[in-house]
Structure formats: structure tokens, C-alpha cells
């Protein structure tokens, strides 16, 4: 895995000055490759959302750098940063993802059109992206006429439309029931498997389990990282004991 899509290098982020100074991030490094999903966990105030904002170029680090598709955000002007964001980075939040007055296809096409792609081409790419998340049939629906799970699929399609392949998600299934949430995460995972790179901020361990790696933030630092994933092998005895709550009587 050598195709580095997103590199966060030794970033610190300090809000305020003097007595009001808050160090949200204190030297975090994280590399995400194509086809990789990294989950970020940690208690409230540990710096998860700050990290996501820096990763997407919504904010700039106090020190350190963020490199998106090989280009340094630290060395970019504000305008270049905005263009890099539009072209390469997509977000999926818990809610309020879509513009209510635009159809699904128009929502997905929006970042392309903002980037100068002609309307017809943008529409074709948007429909292809909707197909990628299994809802091409809903292209002309408005968000209010879609379920929460369908809206999140549109948000994932928009996050990865055209040349975009960095998906940053902040509790993307927070408002959904567990079964629908699983479907949405399955869609997100399959888009990552197709070659995108993702960072998923979550406090739900079951959601973090969709990731290839899980990093734990605390007080603005990565304090731990999950090891290699080993698929459990269930002998009948092991399974029986697991399901009986550890008492294989």
C-alpha cells in the first residue's frame, strides 16, 4: 500500500492565547492510503473534530502540515486551499448534509459545477456516483422525500464524486437506526474498497470496527492504535462459550 492520499504530519493546533490558550492537537501524525479507512476514537474534547477539520483543509494547523494528494496545504494560499478542498475532499456529517432545494443529483453535482465542470458532464458524473452507492433511481428526488439512510448515501456519493477520493466522516450514522447505519457504513466501506481513502470519527466501537485501523486520541495526541486485525476463528467450544457469556457449563 504505497498510494498515500492523505498525510497529516506532526500537526499541532492551538486556539486562543495566554491563559485562554487551548492545545486541541499536540503533534499528531496520520497517513491514509488509497483503499484504507481509519477510524478515530477518543473522549469528548480529545481533538477528533479538530483533526478532521485540519485533514480537510477547513482549518490550518499551528504547526506541521497536511498533504492532500501530494500537495501541501501549509504552502498553499487560501484560494488554492479552497480549490484543493473542492476537488479532493468530501465530508459526511451526522445530519444537514444536503441542500434541501436541490435534487440528489444536483447536490452531488454541486462541487463539480463549483469547480467549473459543465452542467451536463457534472450531471453524468453525479449519476455515476449515485450508482456507486446504489441509488441512481433517486437522482431526481429532493432530500425531504428521502429516508435518512438514502440521504446519507447521497452525501457519500457527493463526497466521492469525480476526482475526489478523500472521505472525511463525522458520526455519519448518528441519526440512523443500527440496521440502516450498518447499510450506510457498508456503502461507505465499499467506496473505500474501490480506491478512496477515509477518516471516520466515531464514538461507536461497532462503527470503528468497519475501519482497517483505529487510532485513539486523548488530550490532542494519538495515545494508541489498534493492532493487526485477526478474524476470530470459532471452534464450537469457543463460540459456545462466547454466546453463553463465558460460562460453558
Amino acid at each position: 500500500m504505497s498510494d498515500v492520499v492523505l498525510e497529516i504530519a506532526h500537526v499541532t493546533h492551538v486556539h486562543g492565547t495566554g491563559a485562554a490558550e487551548v492545545r486541541a492537537l499536540a503533534g499528531v501524525s496520520l497517513t491514509v492510503h488509497a483503499g484504507e479507512l481509519v477510524a478515530v476514537m477518543g473522549p469528548s474534547g480529545s481533538g477528533k473534530s479538530s483533526l478532521l477539520a485540519l485533514a480537510g483543509g477547513l482549518d490550518v494547523p499551528t504547526s506541521g502540515d497536511v498533504v492532500i494528494e501530494g500537495r501541501s496545504l501549509a504552502r498553499a494560499s487560501a484560494r488554492e486551499r479552497a480549490a484543493m478542498r473542492r476537488r479532493h475532499v468530501g465530508y459526511v456529517f451526522q445530519d444537514l448534509n444536503l441542500v434541501p432545494s436541490l435534487t440528489a443529483a444536483e447536490n452531488v453535482a454541486l462541487p463539480l459545477e463549483l469547480d467549473g465542470v459543465r452542467t451536463r458532464d457534472a450531471r453524468a458524473q453525479a449519476v455515476a456516483a449515485l450508482e456507486g452507492v446504489g441509488i441512481e433511481g433517486l437522482a431526481d428526488r429532493f432530500p425531504d422525500d428521502m429516508s435518512g439512510g438514502q440521504q446519507q448515501r447521497v452525501a457519500i456519493a457527493r463526497a466521492l464524486v469525480g476526482p475526489r477520493r478523500i472521505l472525511l466522516a463525522d458520526e455519519p450514522t448518528g441519526a440512523l437506526d443500527t440496521a440502516t447505519g450498518d447499510v450506510v457504513l457498508g456503502v461507505l466501506r465499499s467506496r473505500i474498497d474501490d480506491g478512496a481513502a477515509g477518516v471516520l470519527v466515531t464514538h461507536e466501537p461497532r462503527h470503528a470496527a468497519w475501519a482497517d485501523r483505529v487510532v485513539f486520541l486523548r488530550d490532542g495526541m494519538i495515545v494508541d492504535e489498534s493492532g493487526d486485525v485477526v478474524e476470530p476463528v470459532f471452534t464450537d467450544q469457543v463460540l459456545a462459550a462466547e454466546l453463553a457469556g463465558g460460562d460453558d457449563a
Binding site: P205, A209, F216, V223, G227, D228, E231, P232
Partner: peptide, 23 residues
């Protein structure tokens, strides 16, 4: 606690893979 969290999360990831395959 840290070690337990890491271990149980790895287990969760493994279960998730099995579930994706079962699905």
C-alpha cells in the same frame, strides 16, 4: 483499560469482517 480496549476493538474488527463475508 487501554490494552483491553485495543484488544476488544481488534476483535470487533475481525467480527465485522466475518459479518461482511456472511452478508
Amino acid at each position: 483499560l487501554q490494552a483491553q480496549r485495543r484488544s476488544t476493538l481488534s476483535h470487533l474488527q475481525g467480527l465485522n469482517r466475518l459479518k461482511r463475508r456472511a452478508s
